[in-house]
Design a protein around this nucleic acid. Structure first.
Lengths: 136, 136
DNA sequence: GTTGGTGCAAACGGTTTGCATTTAC
DNA sequence: GTAAATGCAAACCGTTTGCACCAAC
């Protein structure tokens, strides 16, 4: 997170934040852009990307940078882990305590300065399990 | 991992495997391509990508699909975690036991079928810590 | 001889960037 | 008024793909 500095609260930024806070999903930049366009039809994808970057640096939202996948964004800035459905690509929150102590342990053994860790689960969500069953 | 099927052992595949097994680093496809080109000057990047994909499906190497980063490859197919230096981008192995039980725990609480998890650490490697100190 | 693999170059898709115009302050 | 933000379009870059030729088996 960076120091706020001078952060102009433009209409675009307000709407992006409002929309992101209002959904439980973890939209991609493109999805978010479509949602925001319902209120600001002329907003460009570039602006959405730029602002998602700036707002995440300011700690107002979170990037979910999942391996090999399109980036997703989360209005919830509390640290938590995610579960990704390999079938439909959706991302869900995991209700699990953060791993305590592992970073220190790894730092001690590796000589690294460890600044963080990323843990994500891959699997199949309940809806896709159902879909799979009926398909058989 | 997929069933081997009919997997032709072409020169290109042999050399890719040999080169990857011979380095301790975790090269990107491009880096690997340059290394392989010292022995097979006409090999194309497309072939390297294709074969890295096929060989990883066959369980002969591992893709390291680190969030938001170029993909890297590992000749070591044993499951293990990685540490990425945010400064120089290099990837190191972590000597730490695999998390046991978390997948079952998450599956139980979320209703997901959990097929795996990814854990990676970010930090600064010893060399970059040194470089940082002398720069001050 | 028949697949499957290769090299090449073009396409793809998500993300970033340059620039003239607009807007918040 | 001025610095920062926007919209647009083009560029970027890692990766994938279509295709004609080539090589394992």
């Amino acid at each position: 997170m960076e120091s706020p500095g001078k952060l102009r609260m433009t209409t675009q930024r307000q709407v992006i934040m409002e929309v992101l806070k209002s959904v439980k999903s973890h939209p991609t930049a493109g999805e978010l852009c479509s949602m925001v366009r319902r209120r600001l039809p002329r907003i460009s994808l570039g602006t959405v990307y730029r602002n998602l970057d700036i707002l995440s640096r300011a700690g107002m939202l979170q990037k979910i940078d999942v391996a090999g996948q399109e980036m997703r964004f989360d209005g919830n800035t509390m640290n938590h882990y995610h579960l990704r459905c390999m079938e439909c690509g959706r991302v869900f929150d995991v209700d699990m305590d953060l791993l305590a102590g592992v970073e220190e342990q790894v730092a001690r053994e590796s000589g690294f300065q460890v600044y963080g860790h990323r843990l994500e689960f891959v699997g199949r969500c309940e809806a896709c399990q159902e879909a799979y069953k009926t398909r058989q």
